[in-house]
Design a protein around this nucleic acid. Sequence first.
DNA 1: GCTCTTTCGCTACGAGTCGTAGCGTAACTG
DNA 2: CAGTTACGCTACGACTCGTAGCGAAAGAGC
Lengths: 210, 210
Amino acid sequence: MTSASPSGRRTGRPRSAEADRAILDATRAALVELGWGKLTLGDVASRAGVAKTTLYRRWAGKSELVVDAVAALFDEHLELPDRGGLQADIEGVVLQFAALLERPETKTALMAVVAESTRDDALRARIRSAIVDRQKTLVLLGRERAQARGELPHESDPGAADRNADLIFDVIAGTVLHRTLVSAESVDAEWARSFAALVVGGLASVGTLP
Amino acid sequence: MTSASPSGRRTGRPRSAEADRAILDATRAALVELGWGKLTLGDVASRAGVAKTTLYRRWAGKSELVVDAVAALFDEHLELPDRGGLQADIEGVVLQFAALLERPETKTALMAVVAESTRDDALRARIRSAIVDRQKTLVLLGRERAQARGELPHESDPGAADRNADLIFDVIAGTVLHRTLVSAESVDAEWARSFAALVVGGLASVGTLP
DNA sequence: GCTCTTTCGCTACGAGTCGTAGCGTAACTG
DNA sequence: CAGTTACGCTACGACTCGTAGCGAAAGAGC
């Protein structure tokens, strides 16, 4: 056992941060060109100018690597600018999420890793913390703003509030996902407006429930 | 060139229908035990008591085979019993779809083939006709019934009617899919009630739009 | 019955991928 | 400078892929 140290490993050659960048970039490029199915770790390694063994030292397998590569895109491109109203905020996040899902990297990768995660709890946890939870944050932020504006009531029961937030999150993320990847139709401003109107209308009626 | 005949192929040894059943059964069994990722066609063949070459004569690859194997489940387990009201009908179809998605075969297979289909138009078309379009039929049937009951207006603009049906379909199927496979939480009667209430409430407000 | 056609099970194959092991070298710490 | 860890490289057995070739089986048409 090595003695505990302030921050992680203490001695020896440090892992190259540049290699990390190169690998994740190469992964995204390979996803674009080959898609999830034909992507191989050997190919990613050679694209990144890195030995295949280096890849296996850092990631357990294809799924974990791709999750990290895609998660970086979510970090960069998801935010919730305040558009002044609940419906406009929903439209905004819908358009952002859709734009992300229409990229070839995420299109082919996201469903694939979720499919793998149905039989791999560790992978599911990784997806959750790296991608899903960050999306859900936007929903919570949107609710806060709407409550501050008086568009939504402050819920008294915290359990019900959590369940409602989860529901809205599944509705928004799930619908955009299905529209983009299953129905394979694009999300334009008009569709986003119709969908956001439906969600807001539904929220109003659910809010009046016991 | 063989002369045209009333129905497909005319001569030679016919394909064994029993082999088809055995192969699709074996595929579902292999999906349960191994999941999409570790399922191999060689394994399916030996489970079915069939030569691997027979498999390749009938299906182009793993994706096509799995689509057919899963589509059979959708055919068997999706219907729309008339529960007497729009919200109750939605609850019913949500619970049915969720029950289907909670089966280990469909859980691991559906997202995987959709992921593959993002780079394969023929596969996407197969999924659409074998699975998606049959689900969408339920939405159209539910709307008809609701209109007959007077719960929904008869839409005058057919284009807008189509767009609304597509929207509702993406909302229902997408939300249940996301709840089940991404959030990985079960769909119980209470959740179905909340979600159906949100959809019905949203429909009411969208119906009052220009 | 006989022939023709297609499918069947079986075996075998080259190509490609996987994930790991071993080795000598590079980089950083104390 | 000694200790430790990461690196690139090579090589490997195991596995899967999809296909080819063969003789036998199962119907259709005459």
